[in-house]
């Protein structure tokens, strides 16, 4: 059950140009949220912007939750001006997050395109806690340039095997995250059917990934984005096409089984 609360902002930092990490005091969200779920945030208090903005839960601690976001428009700009001590109007946790299946054979591969890294770090933390033994997971971070690579050290601290792909080749491989993950799978190091993809990123990446990865583990999942109004599953405004018809990103998703997504 989501809750509607005014959460106190604990801190806000610009970690890269135009990219902010905010921590809010939200014990309920911290207790109940799973990786991949999101908060529906009222950025301003006027009618412009009018609607809430969906932002993934990035990480959580004992009584706080964090978001990681890029300033891309009015709403996120207002958000970025908030200071520690201010109140943030949030509804959450919302949506259905990533599922971690107990499967010893599974090679978990987290594929992050740009800001898609936000929910995946939370998943990484969940994986490092819930998966016993020394079973690592692989992380592919895709970014425009070296300056845009996010959360690399955080993932390494969790014991993940991290690969970086940049569009201009300024760091790691000159490739898209999807291309790099495909190459790693193709290299034969892992059995394709055992590679369980956890992906998040912009729509073009999602499209490419769905095309490339249909033969990976059936447990593979992807987090998708669509514009939202209610965020609660009521208005039917945020649907995407799937093998079983239109599904609501805010309620049935944002995380979907890779096999379920239908791109035309």
């Amino acid at each position: 059950m989501p809750k509607h609360v005014l959460a106190k902002i604990i801190s806000q930092k610009e970690i890269k140009k135009g990219c902010f990490r905010m921590r809010v005091k939200a014990p309920y969200v911290a207790r109940t949220a799973s990786a991949g779920q999101f908060l529906h945030i009222r950025c301003g208090d006027s009618t412009n912007p009018l609607l809430r903005r969906p932002i993934s839960i990035h990480r959580k601690g004992a009584d706080y939750a964090e978001i990681l976001y890029n300033v891309v428009g009015k709403g996120t700009d207002i958000l970025s001006r908030k200071k520690a001590g201010d109140k943030l109007d949030i509804i959450g946790p919302l949506g259905s997050g990533f599922k971690v299946y107990k499967n010893d054979r599974s090679i978990r591969m987290l594929v992050a395109g740009g800001m898609g890294v936000a929910p995946l770090l939370g998943l990484g933390e969940e994986l490092s806690r819930s998966i016993k033994g020394k079973k690592r997971f692989i992380v592919i971070l895709g970014a425009k340039t070296q300056k845009h690579v996010l959360c690399e050290s955080e993932f390494r601290k969790l014991g993940a095997e991290v690969y970086v792909a940049t569009e201009d080749g300024s760091k790691g491989k000159k490739a898209l995250a999807t291309e790099l993950s495909r190459d790693i799978i193709k290299s034969g190091k892992y059995k394709r059917q055992e590679v369980c993809i956890y992906a998040a990123g912009p729509m073009p990446m999602a499209r490419a990934l769905c095309r490339m990865m249909q033969r990976c583990s059936p447990e593979s999942q992807i987090s998708l984005e669509e514009r939202m109004a209610c965020g609660l599953g009521a208005c039917l405004g945020c649907v995407i096409d799937t093998q079983s018809g239109y599904k609501r990103v805010c309620k049935d998703g944002p995380v979907f089984a890779l096999r379920e997504v239908a791109f035309k």
Binding site: N48, P49, L50, L51, E226, R227, M228, A229, C235, L236, G237, C238, V239, I240, D241, Y246
Partner: peptide
Amino acid sequence: PPRVIETP
């Protein structure tokens, strides 16, 4: 889709 978009 897309089915909703914000305007001023």
